[in-house]
Amino acid sequence: MVTPDMTTTVAGIEFKNPVLTASGTFGYGLEFTDFLDLDRLGGLVTKGLSAAPRKGNPPARVVETPAGMLNAIGLQNIGVPSFLADKLPKLREYDTKVIANVFGATEAAYVEACRMLDGAEGLAGIELNVSCPNTEEGGMIFGVDPAALGHVTRLCRKETKLPLIVKLSPNVTDIRLMARCARDAGADALSLVNTFVGMAIDVERRRPVLANVCGGLSGPAIRPLAVWLTWQVRQAVEIPIIGIGGIMSARDVVEFLLAGASAVQVGTASFVTPSASADIVTELSNWLSERNIASVRELIGGLEVPPRG
C-alpha cells in the first residue's frame, strides 16, 4: 500500500488533491464547516458572484428529476463586496484554494467583478461563469456565442492577474469550438460542464414545475454527457480541464481524470450528503492505494481507446 500523491496543478494553481466543489452547490464554503474540514478539499468554488448583489428568481426553483435535479435559482448572491468583506477573511483561515465564480449581465459587469476581485488576499483564481442557463442576465449569451465568449474572456483576462478558468456551457453544438475560443482569449484552464437546460412539467396542473419554466439539469443523470464533453475538449485544446458533472464517488472522479480532466468539481452530491466532497477525497486516496497508483496525475488523460474492428 502506497500513500498516493494526490496533488495536481491547474492554471498554475497547486491543489493538494483534485477534488474541488462546484459553484452554486457549496455556498461560500463556510456553510459546510459542520460537516467537513475545508482543509481536506483541493479547493472550493464560490456561489456565482456579481459586482452587485442579486435577489434571484421567484420560486419554485428546484425539482428532482430522474437521477438528477433541475434548478433555476437565478444567481442569487451577496455580491463581490460582501464576499470580500464577510466571507473571504474567514476562508483565509483554511488551507484550501478558494476560487471565485464570477458572472455579469454585460461585459462591463464581468470586468467590474474581476477588477474588484483582482489582488484579493487568499483568492487563488477566478472562474468565469459564462454559462448559467437560468437568467437573461446570467451570461448565457457569452457561453453559446463563440465571438462573445472570446471577447468577454479577453476583457476579463486584462483585468486580473489571477489564474482565469472559463466554465463552459454544454448547451452548444460544438463545445470544442468554445474551448478553443476561450483558450485563444487567454483562459488558463477550462471547467466543464455547467448544467444542461431542461424542463419538468406538472402534468396535473399543465404548468412548468419551475417558475422560470426551464432550469439547469445536474446530478448523476448528466455524468455520461459531461465525461464525453470532457473527452472531446481534451482532444481540442491542451490547457487543463476541470471536469464537472454528477460526481458522487471516487470512481466518478477517476472517469473524468481518465477522460482528460486534471481536477474535478463535486456539485449536486454536496446537497445529498454535505460531507460528500471530503468523503470523496478519502475514497479517492484509498482507490489509488488499493491499485498501487503512486500519483493521481498518472490517471489524467489515461484513457485507452482500443482500435476499432
Binding site: 459542520d34 426553483r61 428546484v62
Partner: peptide, 16 residues
C-alpha cells in the same frame, strides 16, 4: 417548499 439541501446552500426553497 421543495429544497435540495436543507441547510441554506442550494437557495431552492425561497419564499418572497
Amino acid at each position: 417548499a421543495h429544497m435540495a439541501c436543507g441547510f441554506g446552500v442550494c437557495i431552492g426553497c425561497v419564499v418572497p
